[in-house]
Amino acid sequence: MRGRITFTRGLALCAAWTIVAFMVLPMLVVVPVSFTDTYYLSMPQEALSLQHYQNFFQNPRWLTAIWQSTLIALGATAIAVGLGTLCAIGCWRIASGTSDMVRLIMLAPIIVPQIVQALAFYRVWIDFGLIDSYTGVILAHSMIGLPYVVITVSAALSNFDVRLEQAARNLGASMAQTVALVILPRIWPGVASGAVFVFILSFDEIVTVLFITSRRIQTLPKMIWDGIQEHLDPTIAVVAVIFTLVVGVIVVIDQLLRARAAAVAARKP
């Protein structure tokens, strides 16, 4: 079969490249637009210009937004990774019907539609006094990110030999020692992968932020959202280019992490 280019396969391959082009097109198109010399959204008319890059890097509002988004994403990642990793390890070791149930419940934030959870956070955050606060956004984002950590860590654990844990315990290690010295060193790529996931998720989250923040918290997505709704500022194209570059780097890192996850888990003791 391999090597024989049949008509069907050739056709499928052409179609697939067309679809991949459709997927990549929007990422590429923002590059020339970001260098436009006009004040509206268009291709460069007469010359390439860096004015919108200058605006982005010198405007305190954009810089504050980056800073706030980073802070929130870091906080949410720390909480989600801490809780999610321990939970996944616990469920993996217990491995009963109840723990399977727990893992299923942990997935709720993936299933519940974004608008529903935004409304839910808003309602309860009023009572908790968390509206328009860093704590409020960090908590909400950490809950939204929790399932992804549970999934990636569970996946890493599925390659891990449970007898190693038993050996450690039989040799007198406490549970904390076993987790820290035996389990974590072998599943860290899964943990890191989950962390990357939560960070990006939080950095990009808009629906909940629109509901639970007002003036004080201005995250990057909120700036982009306002920018699109109001006047289609070409500065957003600059943000888009930077995002695309960063995401490209992250995808490469994540793929390396996954390859590493398989290698670390398969390593003989």
């Binding site: 991949v20 997927m23 929007p26 923002v30 997505p221 957003i236 888009a240 995401v247 992250i250």
Partner: peptide
């Protein structure tokens, strides 16, 4: 790589790009 890039790239940025297009 193309598929994963699309997966990870901000939903807002992607919607914005479609507005441009």
């Amino acid at each position: 790589f193309a598929v994963l890039m699309t997966l990870w790239l901000s939903v807002l940025i992607r919607a914005f790009s479609w507005v441009v297009l």
